[in-house]
């Protein structure tokens, strides 16, 4: 299978890439890992006449700590976060999520930011970045801007990007306190898209109350969704069997699953409830010892 013919350009700077987008608009596509775009091009679902490969742009490579946040550059691969031991303590959800994406071969090429820009409702990173309250950094002819993750997913496969803009990084706020993260996913077979998935992020203040709570819902709506009700409920409370139970019942209320071949809407809602309970219970055990949940 071959894509339609296209012109291939691999610029070395971000400015050149944006200039190319200005010239070619919707005829152009940006490729990083290419693990969603190339299959779409092979199926001729996407048929750009210009392919802009950003892999040679050094400033987009890798992740680094900056003041107040972790900056994950546009060329950071899923595998980079899966194996980043340095990020385990402060950003456990990153590796927890990465390992669930596709398979090791795809994870070696596919990128976090590419996955966000693709805006698939079944995107594991979409759910994780919602839970982490991330910002998406976007560059265009007028410079850079930051888009809160809640505003980034406009609709299925539609991100809040102008035709001349490129996602350059995703910025994850540095959490305060002790941090726990879990990604829970049910799939038909190893490496598949989720039937339903849930990203859970919690940080505890020194008095044991919840300082930050994040729930990102995957594959249960037209875009990745935030479990807002459960987040608001948990803030300032301690993780106890009662609060965990109550929060886990609130998560499905923010989901909009559809009946499909993967399962009924009712089933997916219940999966989300179970995932929230499991995720929170695991995090409580990890952060508080065995005291709370005997």
């Amino acid at each position: 299978m071959f894509p339609n013919s296209f012109e291939y350009i691999a610029p070395k700077t971000l400015m050149e890439a944006i200039e190319l987008l200005k010239q070619h608009g919707y005829d152009a596509k940006v490729v990083a890992g290419g693990q969603s775009l190339l299959p779409m091009m092979k199926l001729r679902v996407a048929a750009p006449s210009i392919l802009i490969d950003i892999n040679n742009i050094d400033e987009l490579k890798g992740w680094r700590n900056e003041s107040g946040y972790l900056r994950i550059g546009a060329l950071t691969r899923h595998a980079d976060l899966e194996h980043s031991e340095e990020l385990r303590e402060q950003y456990p959800l990153l590796a927890e999520t990465a390992v669930w994406i596709a398979d090791p071969l795809v994870r070696n090429l596919g990128t976090v930011c590419g996955s966000l820009a693709h805006a698939d409702p079944g995107s594991d990173w979409g759910a994780a970045m919602l839970a982490l309250h991330a910002q998406v950094e976007v560059a265009g002819p007028e410079g850079k801007r930051q888009v809160p993750i809640d505003d980034f997913f406009v609709d299925t496969f539609t991100p809040a990007l102008e035709e001349t803009e490129i996602v350059t990084a995703v910025l994850v706020p540095t959490p305060v306190g002790r941090v726990g993260g879990r990604y829970l996913k049910i799939e038909r077979k190893a490496g598949d898209f989720a039937i339903a998935g849930l990203a859970v992020h919690v940080s505890l203040a020194s008095d044991g109350t919840v300082a930050e709570a994040g729930f990102g819902i995957c594959a249960c709506g037209p875009i990745p969704l935030r479990g807002k009700r459960a987040e608001e409920y948990l803030l300032g409370k301690k993780l106890t069997p009662e609060t965990i139970e109550a929060a886990s019942r609130l998560v499905p209320e923010d989901a909009e699953p559809a009946d499909d071949l993967r399962g009924s809407a009712e089933y997916k809602r219940d999966v989300l409830r179970v995932f929230a309970k499991r995720g929170l219970s695991d995090i409580a055990k990890e952060l508080q010892g065995e005291v709370v949940l005997r």
Binding site: G34, D53, L105, V106, L109
Partner: peptide
């Protein structure tokens, strides 16, 4: 050095 699916990489890449 990284294992990848060569049906999903362009030769020019």
């Amino acid at each position: 050095g990284k294992a990848v699916k060569s049906c999903t990489v362009l030769a020019v890449q």
